[in-house]
Amino acid sequence: MSEMSEEVRALKPVIEDRIYVGNVDYKATEEELKDLFKDLKVTEVEIPSKENTRGDKTFKRRLGFAFVQFETKEDADKAIADLNGQKFQRRNIFIKKAVPPPTEEEKKVKIEAYKAKKEEIQKAKELKKEANKKNDSTNAESTTKPKVPEGEKSKDTIFITNLDYKVNVKALNNTFKDLKPKWIHVPTRRFQNKKYPNGKFRRPLNKGIAFIKFPNEEVQKQAIEEFNGKEINGRELIIDIAVDSKVPTKEEQEAEADENVEDSNGN
């Protein structure tokens, strides 16, 4: 439709003694525009406007273009040659020969082309929205359903996933304090444990997981039953029995403790 509209426009003959003036200042008047062409024989100046209603008030708003009718083709040609691209009030205008008003058929073609373009844009937006929704669903699934590590199930330790990245050992200790955890390990992203220019440490973010060791298997199961699905910072904990092969070593626990001391000093 758009191509047809362009063809119709290209085939329309111009009006030799009439010009179209574009980018006209909205505050410009017919008299001011006529004065711009004072050295030429102007017979008519028209600045189209549109009537708008706001509440109980109705007002006209100029559309930013105009038509100027001359006595001769030569005057119209001279207006284009002398003033096209020149500044009029606050804007640089552009001038070309005017064409006859569109016929009803041309208006119909233009409207259909506009509708087709609008539908195309809307369809592209919907496809993009669906793609984003699919990506979000995939990311959520990979976050909430982590790969289960292989190994022997622990008799006293739980494995937490879907943990808010800002949760630290202290926060988890407060959450599980009634079950008296023996130790808590929250792996952090070490590259984020840096200093700000003012010398303070940036709080390290965790990796979204944690391990908590309890006195025995009975308390371990109690922790899973009571806290699986509990919300911390807007995210529901996903808790399962830890696998011994993935439980942190003594060295990792000591390193974790050092990081937490350093983080506390920074705050």
Rank of each mutant, 00 (worst) to 15 (best):
Q122I: 00
H185F: 15
P197Y: 10
E6R: 10
I209D: 00
P248D: 05
E46W: 03
K128E: 15
D75S: 04
P187D: 07
S264W: 14
E3Q: 11
A210S: 01
I158N: 10
K166S: 11
K123G: 01
T103A: 02
D258V: 07
E231Y: 10
A66Y: 09
K117H: 12
K12V: 02
V243T: 08
T161V: 08
E226L: 07
E130W: 04
V99W: 01
A257F: 13
A98T: 01
N84V: 11
E236C: 10
Y165T: 09
R54D: 14
E16K: 09
K107A: 01
K110L: 02
E126M: 13
P48T: 03
F176D: 03
N228E: 02
T188N: 13
Q69I: 01
V14P: 07
F37P: 07
F70G: 11
N206C: 03
K117R: 14
K129N: 05
N92S: 12
V45F: 03
K96A: 08
P13F: 09
E104M: 05
V45T: 10
E51G: 06
K134I: 04
F191D: 14
I19D: 11
Q220S: 01
A79N: 07
P101T: 02
A113V: 02
E119P: 00
Q253M: 09
P100D: 03
T72W: 01
K250F: 08
Y196Q: 12
L36M: 13
Y26W: 10
E231H: 07
A131N: 09
E106H: 02
D258Y: 12
P146S: 05
Q222Y: 00
T58C: 06
T29E: 10
E112F: 05
E141V: 05
F65K: 05
P248W: 08
V14I: 14
A79W: 08
E130D: 04
K12W: 02
F191G: 02
K128L: 14
Y196K: 15
K125A: 13
R9P: 01
D39K: 08
E254P: 00
T157F: 10
K194M: 12
V167H: 11
R54N: 14
N265K: 15
V247D: 03
P48N: 06
R235I: 00
S5I: 03
Y20H: 15
P197C: 05
E254Y: 03
K155M: 09
A76P: 02
R190P: 00
L127R: 15
S142G: 00
V148K: 12
I160S: 11
K213E: 07
V21N: 08
G64K: 09
I15T: 06
D136E: 15
R203Q: 07
Q220V: 01
T143I: 13
T58K: 15
F67Q: 06
A98S: 13
